[in-house]
């Protein structure tokens, strides 16, 4: 079993702050400072986010295999949940249909899941143009390694607001967030 955070209290705090910052500034690329030794195929950033946020009170879905499952269980105590009921989800490969995750209800939209979606690369470069709360004008984000059709599939959830799915893209030690309020325009 590989270790979690060097210092569980401070590691959780700094990872949470990075996620808070990322969700406050959608599309901005944030490097996590405290990284646990997450077993492959878990990205270190996804591992840090899960350790910081999950515990016995949060159902967790992931596709990362047995070794990662044991590591996540040991360090978080989070019980396994199917995509439809999980509050946190980690997709190391192509995710299941986004509309199949828990999206909350109109009265309790906060029940919508947070999806940690691993991608090959994140770059502050031409690709997407993001707008919405947290973005002053526009933010450019270039993401590599996403399944085709991702943008359209995610956009279809927009009509359900305030229900929705909040996505944190993870690449190695980097994260960039796509809260449900963010609109993505693809550069032609």
């Amino acid at each position: 079993m590989t270790p979690g955070f060097d210092n569980p209290v401070l590691g959780a705090q700094s990872s949470f702050r990075a996620m808070l910052h990322a969700l406050s500034h959608p599309g901005r690329i944030i490097r996590l400072a405290d990284l646990p030794a997450a077993p492959a195929p878990l990205a270190p950033a996804a591992g840090a986010a899960a350790l910081a946020m999950c515990d016995a009170d949060t159902l967790l879905w992931h596709d990362a295999g047995e070794q990662a499952a044991a590591w996540l269980r040991f360090h978080t105590g989070a019980p396994w949940g199917a995509p439809r009921e999980a509050r946190f989800a980690i997709a190391t490969g192509a995710p299941p249909p986004l509309a199949g995750f828990c999206l909350g209800s109109d009265e309790a939209p906060q029940d919508g899941a947070t999806l940690l979606l691993q991608v090959a690369g994140l770059e502050a470069a031409a690709g997407w143009l993001l707008t919405g709360p947290g973005i002053q004008h526009e933010t450019a984000l270039c993401v590599t390694g996403l399944p085709p059709g991702f943008v359209a599939e995610r956009a279809a959830l927009g009509a359900l607001f305030p229900r929705g799915l909040d996505i944190i893209l993870c690449a190695d030690a980097l994260i960039a967030a796509l809260p449900r309020t963010t609109s993505i325009r693809e550069r032609a």
Binding site: A12, Q13, F16, M19, L20, L23, S24, A52, M53, C54, D55, D57, T58, R87, P109, Q110, G112, T114, P133, G134, P162, G164, D166, P179, R180, T181
Partner: peptide, 15 residues
Amino acid sequence: KRMIRRALLKAVCIP
């Protein structure tokens, strides 16, 4: 703290 942090992240996502 984790419980409050989870609430905070969702609060930011649903302004």
